[in-house]
C-alpha cells in the first residue's frame, strides 16, 4: 500500500511514519512537508502517465493547517486533476483541529473521506488498512493478515 503523508510539521511526519511502519512494514510511504510539493508530485505523475512501477498513492493523510496551501486548498487542486484515478485515492484529513467548521467542510467535500484526530494512533492505521482491503490493487505479499491469503490465491489462480 502506498501512503502519502502531507504535513508541514516534520515531527508529526516522523511520528506518523513510525506508527504506520510499526503496523505494516510493507507500506510505501512518501512524506511531503508542503501541500504544494505534494500536488506537484501528483501533477508530474499525471503528465508522465501512470507506470506500474511508479509510486501512486492509495491513501493520502493530509494536514489541515499548513502555510501557503492548506489541506482544503490541496483538496481543491486535487479535484482539478483529471488523468489520475481519483476514486482509487482515499484522502483523510489528519489534524489536531476538530472544530465543527472543519468537520462540516470535510463532510461537504467530495474527495475527502474523513477526519483523523492527531496524533495518529495504531488503531487508526488498523482501521485504514481494514477499509482499504477491498480496494487493494497490488497484493502486499508481506501482509500478515490471514484473510488476505485467500485473496492472494484467487489472484494467482
Amino acid at each position: 500500500m502506498n501512503i502519502m503523508l502531507i504535513d508541514d510539521n516534520k515531527i508529526d511526519l516522523f511520528v506518523n511514519q513510525k506508527i504506520i511502519e510499526r503496523l505494516s512494514t510493507g507500506c510505501d510511504i512518501r512524506a511531503f512537508t508542503s501541500a504544494n510539493s505534494a500536488i506537484n508530485f501528483l501533477k508530474i505523475l499525471e503528465d508522465e502517465g501512470a507506470y506500474p512501477t511508479m509510486f501512486v498513492p492509495d491513501v493520502i493523510l493530509l494536514d489541515i493547517n499548513m502555510p501557503e496551501m492548506d489541506g482544503f486548498q490541496f483538496l481543491e487542486e486535487f479535484e482539478e486533476l483529471n488523468k489520475i484515478d481519483k476514486k482509487s485515492i482515499r484522502i483523510y484529513m489528519l489534524s489536531s483541529s476538530t472544530s465543527p467548521q472543519d468537520v462540516e467542510k470535510i463532510e461537504a467535500s467530495n474527495s475527502c473521506i474523513g477526519l483523523i484526530a492527531k496524533p495518529l494512533k495504531i488503531y487508526n492505521v488498523e482501521e485504514l488498512l481494514e477499509e482499504f482491503r477491498p480496494y487493494l490493487k497490488r497484493f502486499d505479499a508481506e501482509a500478515e493478515d490471514v484473510s488476505l491469503v485467500g485473496f492472494k490465491q484467487s489472484i494467482e489462480v
Binding site: 510539521n9 508529526d12 506518523n16 513510525k18 510499526r22 489536531s96 492527531k118 496524533p119
Partner: peptide, 19 residues
C-alpha cells in the same frame, strides 16, 4: 487552536516512546 498542534505532536512522540 494552535496550541493543540504541539500537544498532539508530543502525544504522538510519547506513543512512539511507549513502545
Amino acid at each position: 487552536h494552535d496550541l493543540k498542534a504541539p500537544f498532539s505532536s508530543a502525544e504522538g512522540l510519547l506513543d512512539l516512546l511507549k513502545d
